[in-house]
Design a protein around this nucleic acid. Structure first.
Lengths: 319, 319
DNA sequence: CTGAAAGCGCTAACAC
DNA sequence: GTGTTAGCGCTTTCAG
């Protein structure tokens, strides 16, 4: 099935060393012999065995990627950007998942990564981080974990994303756009803190809060209260919740953005497809991938938290 | 960094063989020695080296997964289902991408999979399959390719999905729901053929076709012509195109499903979030994953093409 | 019950 | 220019 150097050596009549020289493009080989060996290798589709190579060189060219959720929270966008960056540098992404409640399976999986991967990138659903579990992993496995978008400083490597500051900046931007009254509808800590940071600025913008969940149905169910608030703009925990509000609005004949403007969070794949396109805070996928590669390459220079991008779309006025 | 069996043997004073017995839970070890070795291994977080293990056992426990697109065509749903199934059986998914135009990089990546993976699952964007390239891969690499949702019979392993028959059945279902006039708006071959198959049934349902692309903007731009057709139901190539029509409808005050019912294709993550929720043909992700695992496990029994599920939602009448 | 040793495929130091 | 050989960490056969 898989031809080896040794077999190539036997079949060609030359030694392993010479065959190796040819296949590794090293000098000091008789051109004629080189040609013969090259042909033989191509004919037999020689491909080096990665397991043997890793073992011998003591180098691991896989990078583990751990996702909590394949369908939400724009994690797929991050995976996409990271995958592209990894492959470009010759690394192979090993895909895994952390399912809350299935920690044992996760550990089993990680143990099969030892020896082929050195780093493991973890994309946790933030605000939902089980720090203890990750710290245990950090100690238990001969793997270097890189935690993305996670505030703890105890963990070996981190790619911090400043959600709080990004929310704050978004609020400032809304104030600049002459909005009068912003309602925050949600319950996630980072969003709340960002709102509070913005409040400290004494903006000419009234800010009020409505406690609600972060799912589609939460946004839909909060609809009446959102309207009752009299706000001219509403910010939701997630694009999902914002999409729920869209449905409520459609049912009630509420016009977006004429009656009320809407901002979501995560910039999901569908945000642009909704009508009107939903303004949202986008994760800096590219920059995250870059940082991760810096860490893996050993030149970890930048440590400042990354910012999210405020994507203005037609769910805001004058877009 | 990573402790080895040999080091464990040296530190404990016993032989590699004995240490191995303990760690592999094999019998015939003095209980006291077992205890000592066990403790030492735990203290040092011993994890077996996968590269060495693969090499020695000549078995590959990674499975490559090749995606064409991370954001469209519900490929993420399939990836999700496959990943879950693979991990459950103790396989590690190796993630890769096929970018049209970047075949060379794809080959480079595949060559790094040799020795750690035996099978590679390919999720091509159907109707867009570059058979030649895949056949070349099949010959060139010591890897067994499993092509999902792909009609060619020349390729070693296949998990066929009967798109044509599924479209046909969807049309029959619409006829049963008393629709009078269905418009197919698109250009993809499998959809067209499915429509043709349905036409052969002489249904009490007028069927007409409108040539259009499969992207969001295509659905949006086709809006006027769709209305002009007088159809009471329209079927698009993709959910994306259907979502484009939603936007047109919102702008023109066209009510879905009162004025016209809509059906998409792919059952994207957002289809349920649109207002009204978009009826669509869903890929049989779970069944695909099952078939793939059957092939990998060597008991390839079922060969009949899988069917897609017609997901009825409120973009249809009386839902 | 325990240990010595071979070998998976690859790489590279060392000879000639 | 070319060949021999040790060894990465693990598994297993064979001897004691």
């Amino acid at each position: 099935m898989m031809i080896t150097l040794k077999q190539l050596a036997e079949q060609s009549g030359f030694s392993i060393r010479t065959v190796r020289r040819v296949l590794a493009n090293q000098p000091h080989v008789n051109p004629e012999k080189r040609r013969i060996i090259m042909e033989l290798a191509e004919k037999n589709c020689y491909v080096p065995n990665m397991a043997a190579r890793s073992l011998r060189l003591q180098q691991k060219n896989c990078v583990g990627v751990l996702l909590e959720d394949f369908s939400q929270n724009a994690s797929v966008n991050k995976l996409n950007a990271l995958d592209a960056a990894l492959v470009e540098k010759g690394f192979c992404p090993l895909l895994g998942r952390i399912t809350p409640g299935a920690e044992a399976e996760c550990e089993k999986m990680l143990s099969t990564w030892a020896g082929v991967a050195e780093y493991v990138v973890v994309f946790p659903v933030a605000d939902n981080l089980r720090i203890n579990f990750f710290q245990k992993l950090n100690k238990q496995f001969p793997l270097k974990f890189i935690f993305v978008d996670c505030d703890s400083t105890d963990l070996q490597y981190c790619v911090p994303v400043d959600r709080v500051g990004s929310v704050r900046n978004m609020v400032l931007a809304l104030a600049e756009m002459k909005y009068k009254h912003l309602l925050y509808c949600g319950s996630l800590l980072t969003r709340k803190k960002g709102i509070e940071e913005a409040e400290k600025e004494n903006l000419p913008l009234k800010i009020s809060c409505l406690q609600a969940g972060s799912e589609f149905s939460d946004g839909e169910n909060a609809g009446e209260k959102v309207l009752a608030s009299g706000a001219d703009a509403v910010f939701f925990d997630t694009d999902r919740a914002a999409a729920g509000f869209y449905r409520f609005a459609a049912g009630r004949g509420v016009r977006i953005p004429e009656d009320i403007s809407v901002v979501g969070f995560d910039n999901e794949l569908y945000s642009d497809i909704l009508t009107p396109p939903l303004a949202s805070l986008a994760h800096p996928e590219k920059e995250i991938a870059e940082r991760i590669l810096q860490i893996i390459s050993g030149d970890e220079t930048e440590k400042t938290p990354l910012k999210m991008r405020f994507i203005k779309r037609k769910s805001l006025k004058n877009m």
